[in-house]
């Protein structure tokens, strides 16, 4: 390993084991988005699940989403731009619960999340099931702020945070893993922070 002359750096403390390679800790909550923050009125908001043939399997309004059994999680999140934030508290509806509400089993092994602002990201079904994926609408005990993806965002904290799509409106099942927005612009198709899968080819 080639060292950098004169570089010492700031060592992370006891929490270092929770910080994936190449990441640094932040206590702030940075905002990264490719475009302006979209604003959809809650009355006009809905969440849709579609099968691989674009047929609607489920649709819920904002009120209906809030009426579904909620899950609360405290998780570490890791952004590909290098920051890691520990112990973030979220509340929302798990993907498992949504499937139950829809009364369906996943018809395929991949999902594309579609969002206001034309953002998309692909996530394997296996990474959403078993409580791993949430439609989150509360952060730190408060309604999720617009800049952080409110009213609701996908939360898949064990993958780099671009997979936790802000402003999510639709989950579509896909027969094959297909790149979403950042995955088509040079970023990794899966994005495991512990394997440092940041970019194509990692």
């Amino acid at each position: 390993m080639a060292t950098t002359r004169g570089f010492r750096g700031k060592r992370q403390g006891a929490e270092a084991g929770r910080v994936p390679p190449g990441q640094y800790l932040t206590s702030d909550f940075p905002v990264l988005s490719a475009g302006p923050t979209p604003r959809t009125a809650l009355e006009a908001w809905s969440l849709v699940i579609e099968d691989t043939k674009l047929r609607e399997l489920y649709r819920c309004s904002w009120r209906e989403l809030l009426a579904l059994p909620a899950t609360e999680v405290t998780v570490d999140i890791h952004c590909v731009t290098k920051w890691t934030k520990l112990g973030t508290r979220w509340k929302g509806v798990s993907f498992d619960t949504l499937l139950e509400a829809a009364g369906t089993e996943p018809p395929s092994q991949h999902v594309m999340a579609y969002c206001d602002g034309d953002y998309t990201t692909n996530v394997p079904v296996a990474d959403l099931r078993g409580g791993k994926g949430l439609i989150a609408y509360e952060y730190d005990g408060k309604p999720l702020a617009l800049v952080h993806g409110g009213p609701a965002r996908l939360l898949v904290p064990h993958l780099y945070f671009w997979k936790s799509a802000k402003w999510v409106r639709k989950l579509r099942f896909l027969n094959a893993d297909t790149p979403g927005f950042w995955e088509s612009h040079g970023y990794h198709i899966y994005g495991d922070p512990w394997k440092e899968q940041r970019y194509e080819g990692d």
Partner: peptide, 13 residues
């Protein structure tokens, strides 16, 4: 990516 003598690394964009 910078690497200290003891192998510690830091990365930024």
């Amino acid at each position: 990516r910078l690497t200290a003598d003891d192998g510690y690394q830091a990365e930024r964009s």
